[in-house]
Design a protein around this nucleic acid. Structure first.
Lengths: 168, 168
DNA sequence: ATAAACTTTCAAAAACATTTGAAAGTTCGA
DNA sequence: TCGAACTTTCAAATGTTTTTGAAAGTTTAT
């Protein structure tokens, strides 16, 4: 297999995975492209390699920077902006986890809390089932949330380190 | 807060979370509704509670059964089909993990393997970066995959049990 | 101050995903 | 076997998300 073909396939695989996990395909593809590029790329480079419009390229690079997965890089003697991806894959995972936790898990947790506090009459079977289910889900999500917290706090990755030794 | 309002909010929260994680909103809502229903519900019940069409209700219930999250239940003396959700939230998590692993992680892993095997000339900087990145991602995804395997194999949930004790 | 080089914005278009509902299919009891 | 009760299907309609590209905005060198 030629390098170009392999690169193409990698970008497309990453794009597919992204869209299955609620990340837009182009954003995942831009990310993939930057991950396998030894040198920073300009917006033009990205447009050309992925066949996407300027607006699209710009927007996705910007989003990736909001996720802290991509950095702006200055190249001496050039006015263009260049971009590189964070290459440490563990760090990538940490940052994605951090962001999704903040954006998606925390609001749900807050809502579940609120629903759990609500004074629901637990005399009807519906009331009973509601309290039980919401309680269980709250506990579960809370544990997940705390687990992610721990993993993120752990400076030296001891958490994942230890965990992964168990998984060999 | 009235029970009805709380139920409405729960269903809508679960629907939002679902769509953020690549699960269609109606499917997540049907799931939520069944989770908080003490008794099995018929297609009619679901249509009515969620204000969705018959086709939609039918399709999503069917999908939920494919995910092993919902069961068909027979009610004596009635020809209608009734549905209940798996209520054990740990079991729910296990089944979702199992299914997503099969549908989404395994194909990616296979592709990464293939790309890693490919004879790429590692003399160019691009070739070098490609091999390095694909190698790293492969290892990472492989560990995730093995970790999920372990969690799923563990009969008595010792894995999550142990893990979660750490998270308190 | 100007103009070239570059980046950002955003309304409209295109692509994609979901939902509807009526028709076709199935099952069951008599 | 028939018809009523129910379930499934699927083409069309609707709704949502993504993409485009040209115009507006910004920055920089001279």
């Amino acid at each position: 297999m030629k390098l170009d073909e392999a690169r193409r396939q990698f970008i497309q695989t990453w794009g597919t995975l992204g869209s299955e996990w609620g990340i837009n395909r182009s954003m995942a593809q831009v990310h993939a492209l930057l991950l396998i590029s030894p040198e920073p790329l300009s917006t033009e480079d990205i447009m050309e390699e992925l066949n996407i419009s300027r607006g699209n390229a710009n927007m996705n690079v910007r989003d990736l920077m909001n996720w802290n997965l991509v950095y702006k890089e200055l190249v001496a003697g050039d006015r263009k902006e260049y971009f590189t991806a964070e290459k440490d894959i563990w760090e990538v995972a940490r940052r994605i986890a951090k962001e999704r936790k903040k954006r998606e898990i925390e609001p749900v947790l807050q809502k579940l809390n609120q629903l759990q506090q609500a004074e629901i009459d637990a005399k009807s079977p519906q009331g009973k089932e509601f309290k039980k289910t919401v309680g269980n889900i709250h506990d579960f999500v809370d544990r997940m949330d705390k687990g992610v917290d721990m993993a993120l706090r752990a400076d030296e990755n001891w958490f994942f380190g230890t965990l992964f030794k168990l998984m060999k």
